[in-house]
Design a protein around this nucleic acid. Structure first.
Lengths: 145, 145
DNA sequence: CAAATAGTTTAAGCGTGCTGAAATATAAAG
DNA sequence: CTTTATATTTCAGCACGCTTAAACTATTTG
């Protein structure tokens, strides 16, 4: 029998998604980035740097697709492709300052509603929620991706 | 000065997104649904039913785009377009049983990792997290979208 | 060094999603 | 009843993301 917490977290996730995804998609459209592009930017941002086929694997596409997607990011000045010094068959991908700015902006767009929720909590409640979320975050660090 | 809870929740949201989005995208690719299609299915699912331009507005696209997107959903047997009895200029969109099943499957795909986290918590910790999340959920019900 | 292997890119082709403009159908107003 | 407004659809055209297959380039191996 699964604990009641699981169901609660599932509902929480559904609610979060409804709020966040809408903002995220609207941000993408307004700024003329595709979901695929933002997804790639987020992944590179999170890893700091990565190879082409590595990126493709993470996104579940071929390396040809990853290479083409990257073309557009480079062309827009959001990413840089450079050679791997140790094995020149590989390329190393980094974000430019502009690319990192996009990621931070998109995250902020997604999180706008959070502040409203926090403001509805009393200081004691805030502390209670803070402790609980930190607990979850700690446990999640042990999971892989 | 913003409360520390806000920063904690923001990090929590980032982590959630990284875990959930990957599963979600892979689900979409494996089952050959586009993000746009799943997005539309989720929105119709959540509202129960809706009009065409209403759907377009929510997704931030023209009603022409919404109509075309819907064509494919109908063709795949996931949605139904029917006339509004009271104003026959409008169409009312519903999901079929198959459409609802897809939404539930996609949600489950996104939530797979939650169980792992819950299992790492002691019963006391589970109760603590449960209480906190319920508190957040209650406050969020008062927000709009 | 020649051959096999590995990582990336290029090219052709397909399906999708989008837009703007025109067409269609219904409803409401004068 | 004619005009105007509203909701949806159709159409042409464009950009994107993807795949497979072929082409490069660099490394490793026999």
């Amino acid at each position: 029998m699964s604990p009641p917490l699981l169901a609660t977290l599932q509902e929480w996730l559904r609610v979060i998604m409804r709020f966040s995804m809408r903002n995220f998609m609207l941000y993408a459209r307004e700024h003329n980035y595709s979901i695929a592009q933002l997804n790639a930017l987020f992944r590179i941002y999170h890893r700091g740097s990565c190879g082409i086929s590595e990126l493709g694997d993470e996104m579940g596409v071929t390396s040809a697709a990853a290479s083409q997607l990257l073309d557009r990011l480079v062309q827009q000045g959001l990413a840089i492709r450079s050679e791997d010094v140790h094995d020149r068959r590989n390329k190393v991908v980094h974000l430019t300052e502009a690319g990192r700015a996009i990621v931070q902006e998109a995250m902020a767009a997604r999180q706008g509603w959070l502040e409203e929720v926090v403001n509805q909590l009393t200081p004691q409640e805030q502390q209670q929620v803070e402790d609980a979320i930190r607990l979850l975050l700690d446990k999640m660090r042990t999971l892989n991706p």
